[in-house]
């Protein structure tokens, strides 16, 4: 038996499928990226041709996926330890670390160039900055260095509506930054609520999550503070060109519920939490998923109804 034939027989036991490569792109995170970027594009005052819009969203999605692949490449060591991430393609042994790096770099370069060609150079440059921010600033540097890691991560995940807006208009204004603020300020309460009932995972991985470094009491206070600031920004957005009566109604109801949940979490006693298996924290986490989707959904509804004189102020 030659070296080569031995080598050929030593390939991975479980061959990676296309699905495994797709999983590298973090499709669930990508779906949020696609949705918020689409809302940013649609809410912009300048309409774009559906094909250009489709291309813009596609390349933003690929850029987001590329970030995910590079994140998995860098975080392979901690993904192996955490229960939540053990099934990812690299720790599961289906995809090699080098492959994730290759795929991430290839798709990053391609998505940036193609977005610049399909829309404008500003949008392409902003996508490049977003990928750099998420991969280098967040994943490689601050994620393991500060308990405020999730805040920085939230910034990276909040850029897509801004990119969508720039792709349509080629310029900046206050509205996309308010949409940015929605995701940016929503991310910490969303993830800290998760961390409250998943603390052991982050402990084992040695990631300085707020629950690990400052304890649960401090985390609860942080959730409340961020929720109050988030509510202020969410309601402010209602009175801009992307807002309107539909958005205002949605924002008032959701922020009232979100604030109520944050106050309940802040007041909670640890022993009660343990006894009811973090019931309030879990329901707050579920509400947070709905919260962002409905806010952006309301902005989208306003944009779609505007041509018929029904949306906006």
């Amino acid at each position: 038996m030659t070296d080569a034939s031995i080598n050929a027989s030593m390939t991975r036991e479980e061959e990676a499928s296309l699905g495994d490569y797709f999983a590298l792109l973090k499709p669930r995170v990508m779906s949020l990226v696609v949705f918020t970027a689409f809302v940013g594009l649609m809410a912009a005052p300048i309409g774009v041709h559906p094909v250009i819009g489709f291309c813009a969203i596609l390349f933003i999605a690929i850029g987001g996926g590329a970030s995910g692949a590079l994140n998995m490449w860098w975080d392979a060591d901690i993904d192996q330890v955490m229960k939540r991430t053990k099934g990812r393609p690299i720790p599961a042994g289906k995809v090699d670390k080098g492959e994730a790096l290759s795929l991430g770099l290839a798709l990053s370069g391609l998505s940036v160039i193609m977005l610049a060609l399909a829309t404008n150079v500003f949008a392409g440059a902003f996508l490049a900055f977003t990928i750099f921010f998420y991969v280098v600033i967040y994943t490689m540097w601050l994620k393991r260095a500060t308990p405020q890691n999730i805040v920085i991560g939230g910034a990276a995940g909040a850029f897509p509506p801004v990119i969508g807006w720039i792709a349509a208009t080629g310029s900046m204004s206050v509205e996309p930054w308010l949409m940015f603020a929605l995701t940016f300020l929503w991310t910490p309460p969303h993830f800290w609520a998760l961390a409250l009932f998943m603390r052991n995972d982050y402990d084992m991985a040695d990631v300085p999550m707020l629950t690990v470094t400052h304890g649960r009491r401090s985390t609860r206070k942080h959730i409340l503070v961020y929720t109050v600031i988030l509510a202020a920004f969410a309601l402010t957005t209602a009175f801009t060109s992307v807002g309107g009566p539909i958005y205002l109604t949605t924002a008032v109801v959701l922020n009232a519920l979100f604030l109520k949940g944050a106050v309940q979490i802040w007041r909670r006693d640890e022993e009660i939490c343990e006894s009811d298996n973090f019931k309030i924290e879990r329901s707050f986490f579920k509400l947070s998923l709905l919260y962002l989707f409905l806010h952006f959904g309301a902005i989208l509804a306003e944009a779609l109804l505007k041509p018929y004189g029904l949306g906006g102020w």
């Binding site: 080569a4 080598n7 050929a8 027989s9 030593m10 390939t11 991975r12 061959e15 990676a16 492959e99 290759s102 290839a106 370069g109 391609l110 160039i113 193609m114 060609l117």
Partner: peptide, 29 residues
């Protein structure tokens, strides 16, 4: 091609993909 057991083959397919990506961009330009 990335899943080939042979490093040289993997590299060859990487090169094809890189060149085709470049060609796509140049074509659009």
């Amino acid at each position: 091609g990335r899943r080939s057991a042979h490093k040289a083959t993997q590299f060859a397919f990487n090169a094809v993909f890189a060149a085709l990506s470049l060609q796509l961009v140049i074509g659009i330009v």
